[in-house]
Design a binder for these strands. Structure first.
Length: 662
DNA sequence: TACGTGGCGCTTTTT
DNA sequence: GCGCCACGTA
């Protein structure tokens, strides 16, 4: 047995930062906590990020090296912001800290131990669409009868399997709990799961779940690898802990097994991702799993006026499971109660918002300080149209994400193929773009190609493809295709990703773009953006990882950190988490819309909707408008009367001011 | 086997 | 008002 002996830095050096002066007592206690497990319950707007940032700088100041810190976040954006803020306090440190989403850290570890994890180097990452595509292929080749009876679609099967994995349940449990009507298919689902697993491995591809699951497996089964990271990371910090799922919390537990130096930060009242497998028992039961854990509560709110906070506190009261805490305001009142607005229908609601926004603008409020929040994308349709009519600029943070658009994925399929010749999904996608090549031909070609690769893995893929037999009608295009693949990696040496994109567009994709889509120009511009973005990468594999793991793209990431244009924000509540605006409109607060229809029957789901509502209202700094149309206009089924959201009924009337709109 | 056309169902949230 | 799937035809 070796003994670990660690040298301490001179403790007599005074700290550069006066933590007690920079932070409030609760924040300071958490930021300067002694080593060991810690749970920080930080309410909305209580300076959670600030506390975590100062925690990092405190660790650095007291002798922890930057590379010994692992900072886990939920979104790339959160990670970037945090590291930027750390850099302001402790320059130089940010680049050496391992920070990122669980998925990106998993990817990073798996890339370094690819063989031990059971994969070949250059593995592909599949997004949801790719998963669905592969599952379709698996279902097709499984011989399962999908025509003669109502068998769920591949994507649905995929979802069930994913949920089972992320929650640690069996397929049967997931079915009986969430999809009772699929119970009869449970065995078939399980068979498909095994085939899908095997298929992924043979095509050297990992899906999102694998990035978590295979990383845990690696740490579980390879003691020497686990040991390396346990020694490397002296401290693990986790943001948004309430949204971790079973695999994510296992990952943390595996890493800190020896020293228990883990600080998890979160707010149980803002847990809104259970549908993705998040289990907020992780945060509720943290003190049980780490009995020596210290619990810190941060309850002072710096964001909102007291009127908004009182409403928020009242709104969350309806939930039974939560850590007890009350947000107290530090800001003075502005003598303005949150507004409760009843409207005729969605159009009137939109008109109300447009008019009110123009007034606020006249009062000197910047559009960037205003947001319209909703439960689901489509709730914003009328608002979008109305804003356009009035010429009010707006940005939508939800909707189709940049990297998930068909044309972006089409082009990247070629790059994936050049990096990972075994990538069946990418191969088929690319081939189907050629005129005269459909599903069947792509599949036949793939079978032939994968056999060739198995026989002779040394020959590069372009050479192999040039020997393929293809239907006469597609011969010309096939030649062009092979030539393009060759160009991406001449003699097996990949060129830079930006050049690859250029080649693909010029050789064949530009033609496809013109005939396949009506908005050729817009999509062509997107591809230019993609190319510019790729310019920042030398290595195609890094570029592709980034593409897969970062589904959205902010304009500032391409054009540089210049000022955002003045525009109103339209966002789903999920995507608004962690953000704040002076003025917030929450729309479609009716039963069936918010809370959503499918949560009305299920008490747990309803509690999550309530937390979502809580997240929505706590985004507001100064003004809050809650609106509910009485009528939902529906072309197909006729108009539907809407009851006000039950969440509105739970708020004492004296906390709201009714606006009667005429 | 590829691809165009018409009917149908139906709307969540995302790494 | 829209996207997806099934069907029929070239």
């Amino acid at each position: 047995m070796a003994k670990t002996y660690s040298l301490k830095r001179s403790s007599s050096t005074p700290l550069r930062i006066d933590y007690a002066a920079e932070l409030n007592p609760q924040q300071c206690a958490a930021a300067t906590a002694a080593p060991g497990p810690a749970l920080v319950i930080a309410g909305a707007g209580s300076g959670k990020t600030r506390t975590l940032t100062y925690r990092v700088s405190y660790l650095l100041e007291t002798g922890t090296a930057p590379w010994e810190i692992l900072l886990l976040t939920f979104t790339n954006k959160a990670s970037r912001e945090m590291l930027e803020r750390v850099a302001l306090i402790s320059p130089e440190a940010d680049r050496k800290i391992w920070g990122g989403t669980f998925h990106s850290v998993g990817n990073r570890i798996l890339r370094q131990h690819t063989e031990a994890a059971g994969y070949r180097s250059g593995f592909s990452i599949m997004d949801r669409e790719d998963q669905g595509d592969l599952m379709k292929a698996v279902v097709a080749s499984s011989g399962i009868d999908t025509k003669g009876r109502r068998f769920p679609k591949a994507e649905v099967v995929s979802d069930v399997i994913s949920l089972a994995l992320n929650t640690g349940q069996t397929i049967e449990e997931v079915c009986s709990f969430k999809y009772p009507y699929f119970l009869e298919f449970a065995d078939e689902f399980d068979g498909l799961r095994k085939q899908y697993e095997a298929r992924k491995k043979s095509i050297n591809s990992l899906d999102f779940d694998d990035l978590l699951e295979k990383t845990c497996k690696l740490l579980r089964e390879h003691e020497e690898v686990a040991d390396r990271y346990r020694k490397k990371f002296k401290v693990v910090l986790v943001d948004e802990y309430q949204d971790t799922n079973r695999l994510q919390s296992e990952f943390i537990d595996l890493l800190v097994r020896d020293h228990h130096n883990v600080m998890v930060v979160g707010d149980d009242a803002q847990s809104i991702y259970s549908w993705r497998g998040a289990d907020f028992r992780n945060i509720m039961e943290f003190p049980n799993r780490y009995p020596e854990a210290k619990v810190y509560k941060i309850e002072q709110n710096y964001r909102s006026v007291p009127e908004v906070l009182e409403l928020a506190n009242a709104a969350i009261l309806g939930n039974s499971q939560q850590f007890e805490k009350t947000l107290t305001a530090t800001r003075p009142s502005m003598e303005l109660l949150p507004a409760l607005v009843e409207l005729q229908d969605g159009n009137e609601q939109a008109a109300f918002i447009a008019q009110r926004v123009l007034e606020l603008q006249d009062e000197g409020i910047d559009l960037r300080e205003i947001a319209v929040l909703y439960r689901a994308h489509y709730h914003s349709m009328e608002v979008q149209m109305e804003l356009t009519r009035h010429g009010i600029p707006f940005e939508i943070t939800s909707g189709i994400r940049f990297f998930e658009q068909a044309h972006v994925k089409d082009v990247s399929a070629f790059l994936k193929l050049a990096t990972n010749p075994r990538d069946e999904v990418a191969f088929k996608r690319a081939v189907r773009l050629l005129p005269g090549f459909g599903n069947k031909t792509a599949d036949t070609l793939w079978r032939w190609l994968s056999e060739q690769i198995d026989v002779d893995s040394s020959t590069d893929i372009a050479t192999l493809l040039s020997e393929a037999k293809v239907p006469a009608r597609g011969a010309k295009h096939w030649q062009q295709f092979v030539y393009t693949i060759e160009e991406l990696a001449p003699a097996g040496n990949p060129v830079r990703p930006a050049e690859m994109i250029k080649s693909v567009i010029e050789a064949l994709y530009d033609d496809h773009l013109k005939v396949a889509f009506t908005n050729y120009t817009a999509r062509r511009d997107d591809l230019q953006v993609l190319m510019d973005y790729a310019g920042g990468y030398d290595n195609t594999q890094d570029f592709l990882s980034q593409l897969a793991l970062q589904t959205s793209l902010e304009s500032s990431e391409i054009t540089g950190p210049e000022e955002r244009d003045e525009a109103l924000t339209l966002s789903s509540v999920h995507q608004a988490k962690g953000l704040e605006w002076k003025v917030v409109f929450v729309i479609w607060l009716t039963d069936g819309m918010f809370p959503g229809n499918r949560s009305l029957e299920d008490p747990d789901a309803l509690e999550e909707e309530r937390r979502l509502f809580y997240v929505a209202v706590t985004r507001a700094k100064d003004q809050l408008y809650l609106s509910h149309p009485v009528l939902r206009l529906n072309a197909g089924y006729g108009d539907m009367l809407q009851r006000p959201s039950r969440f509105l009924g739970e708020i004492p009337v004296n906390l709201l001011e009714r606006w009667d709109v005429e």
